[in-house]
Design a protein around this nucleic acid. Structure first.
Lengths: 216, 216
DNA sequence: AGATAATTTGACCGATTGGTAAACATTACA
DNA sequence: TGTAATGTTTACCAATCGGTCAAATTATCT
């Protein structure tokens, strides 16, 4: 007789680790494209190469699968912002934050789209995290930016909207990838577009935040 | 006997106009949140306040409803970019383009999310439009921006990524509204945040594109 | 090897899905 | 006002949905 699923977390088998990994990988494929409501367990089972009841042996419900996936993805997703350092000089900090976020958009586009899907639906599964830990982290980094402003290292600006604009411009290359490719055409759709984007965004943000003669 | 639906477009009744309007309004509500796959005809019927077979009297399939909705929304959605004028001076053109796009994010957030959902899913219903009319329009405006660069009115930059960054920063306030509200907190979630965003984005883009001493 | 625990699957369930058929109700127009 | 076209609803369909169950299979450990 199989162990009740509640006890599974006590001792994890090799097979459990592998299969749960395999399932979440497939779930990321599916959820990131169709969102929670639009995805089906059968789709995920097919991508994972296992039967539907087998998925449900490891995750009791579709909700549980989605929650596990979000949990695993979220921590890494905020890593670049956490690395945002008060000690470094503003220009290089902003530059490397843009770089890091662009690298994530390039290397983990499914994670970005999973998150975007969740936002579009009103964040039903992560609203508490947005209002809690995320807000606290952003508040902290906004305070750092404000010290840079007060010491005259960068132009006066709203630090929250600065962070929003770095998020949106970088994630755009993951979430709207299909549009970017269509507009740039086949010839400019290679990985080179990320280097072009990085150059442009660095110029935009460094120039736009230059302390002297900035703003209207 | 009811007229076959193919003939309906020949002469449109008052009731047809009203009901189709009513249905597309409800469809926008539902599709913009859950995407195509995640939305059901029953949901739309409930929002529209009519029975499911009644919806299907006006639109034969869920696909037809979605297509009609996209068609109606797309033209207006590109209006701000179309208004982008080569004659005006760069600073005021960019300024007013940002303004217009932000106003659309504020006044038509569902339209923005409908479009975002479509992009996340790989644009299955609008890919041809992206590669055709949209690309042509963007190519045209990119050429305008390039003349500004060559005449030294704005700094050298990639015009495509400039357009992408205006799209992403402005649409962010519609698509990620729930995140913006959560991070800013209840006190700053009023309509004032759009004015703050406008001020910040104008400063960012005007400063970032200033011709002298720009770039790294 | 044998026993026991862990894993996998086929068959199945009730609910929901997109969509249909036909009866019924309403409107527009002569 | 009559009647034909238009509009609406009830009842229903096959397919798919999330999820269960028991039987069959495989891994683990002594």
């Amino acid at each position: 007789m199989a162990i009740p699923r509640a006890a599974k977390t006590l001792r994890r088998t090799r097979i459990q680790e592998e299969k749960e990994e395999q399932i979440l990988e497939a779930a990321l494929d599916v959820f990131s494209v169709s969102g929670f409501r639009g995805s089906t367990i059968d789709q995920i089972a097919e991508v994972a190469g296992m039967s539907k009841p087998n998925l449900l042996y490891y995750f009791r419900t579709k909700e549980a699968m989605h929650r596990a996936l979000i949990d695993r993805v979220l921590y890494n997703w905020l890593e670049p912002l956490r690395a945002f350092d008060a000690e470094g000089n503003p220009e290089s900090e902003i530059r490397s934050y843009i770089r890091r976020k662009l690298e994530m958009a390039r290397d983990f586009p499914r994670e970005s789209r999973l998150f975007a899907n969740e936002m579009l639906q009103g964040a039903p599964h992560v609203l508490d995290m947005l209002k809690g830990p995320l807000k606290e982290l952003v508040d902290e980094k906004a305070a750092v930016i404000r010290t840079w402003i007060k010491s005259g290292k960068i132009a006066y600006c709203d630090p929250y909207h600065l962070i929003f604009s770095i998020w949106s411009t970088t994630q755009h290359y993951a979430d709207f990838d299909v549009q970017v490719r269509a507009v740039l055409g086949e010839e400019h759709s290679g990985d080179g577009r990320f280097e072009d984007a990085a150059r442009f965004l660095e110029q935009l943000f460094i120039g736009g935040l230059r302390p002297d003669r900035s703003g209207s």
